[in-house]
Simulated scan of single mutants.
Amino acid sequence: MLLFDGHGRGDVDQERIALVGISQVGYWVPRALAFERRIAAAVADPGVLDVSTSWWQHLPGELRAVWESGEREAFDQYLREGLKGDPDGAATWAWRAKPYGIDSPFDLLTEIGRYTLAPVVDQSTTPPLITDPEGESFWPGQSEQLHEALTGPKELVRFTEAEGADLHCEPLGRAVLEQRVFDWIDARLGTGG
């Protein structure tokens, strides 16, 4: 993540830098807040405490046991055989795995297992806004868990099916989401409209 520092630009107020992230960036935003002190307002849509849960929830429990035993070759073979019979699952796996550049499923899940906020969640000094969409499919319940784990000021905002702003990243309710998010940022940064 690159954070522009605004030096040399008269149009960047270094006291009012905002950071907004959607989907898995709901992990990276709170992580950045643990280390970066220049951020004045931050939004995680949704809140993600542990990235790996979105991977494991779609895999059979016995596969997790093989991974935990450290049997790399057996795990990779088992998963690859399973994906051969599931073209949609294989395409989804390939699409989600591509940014990591790791071929071995065992190694990939080992790496993704490192993406947890547990060691740093209490280091944030910037109060974030965390969205909590009804029907969150990738990280259900994690927005609330992140909200509870943060020790300082924070705000949790729920989005519902009734208002048309449910599901992962509120795809059909972006106007509702953006109105609430920008109102919150406006109040946080004191822009006065």
Rank of each mutant, 00 (worst) to 15 (best):
I17H: 07
I17Y: 09
I17S: 06
A18R: 04
L19F: 11
L19Y: 12
L19S: 08
V20K: 10
V20N: 03
G21T: 06
G21R: 07
G21L: 08
Q24P: 02
Q24N: 13
Q24S: 11
V25S: 15
V25W: 13
G26K: 02
G26C: 04
G26Q: 01
Y27W: 15
Y27T: 11
V29H: 01
V29L: 03
R31H: 14
R31Q: 13
R31C: 00
R31V: 00
A32I: 07
A32C: 13
L33C: 07
A34V: 02
F35D: 13
R37Y: 00
R37G: 04
R37T: 08
R38F: 08
R38C: 06
R38Y: 07
I39Q: 12
I39G: 13
I39H: 12
A40C: 04
A40L: 05
A40N: 05
A41T: 11
A41M: 08
A41F: 05
A42S: 07
A42D: 09
A42I: 10
V43G: 11
V43F: 11
A44F: 05
A44M: 02
D45R: 02
D45N: 15
P46K: 13
G47N: 08
G47F: 05
V48H: 08
V48A: 04
L49A: 14
D50E: 14
D50V: 14
D50P: 06
V51P: 05
V51W: 04
T53M: 09
S54P: 00
S54H: 05
S54N: 12
W55Y: 12
W55Q: 04
W55D: 06
W56Q: 07
Q57M: 10
Q57C: 04
Q57S: 07
H58A: 08
H58N: 13
H58K: 03
L59M: 15
L59V: 03
L59N: 03
G61I: 02
G61Y: 02
G61L: 12
L63N: 02
L63G: 14
R64N: 00
A65N: 11
A65P: 01
A65T: 12
A65C: 05
V66C: 01
V66D: 00
V66F: 01
V66W: 08
W67S: 02
W67H: 15
W67D: 05
E68W: 10
E68N: 11
E68T: 15
S69R: 15
S69D: 14
G70P: 05
E71L: 06
E71A: 15
E71S: 15
E71K: 15
E73D: 15
E73P: 00
A74T: 14
A74G: 09
A74Y: 01
A74N: 03
A74F: 07
A74D: 06
A74V: 13
F75K: 13
F75I: 10
D76P: 03
D76M: 01
Q77P: 00
Q77C: 01
Q77N: 06
Q77L: 11
Y78G: 02
Y78H: 14
L79P: 01
L79A: 05
R80A: 09
R80L: 11
R80N: 11
E81G: 05
E81N: 11
G82T: 03
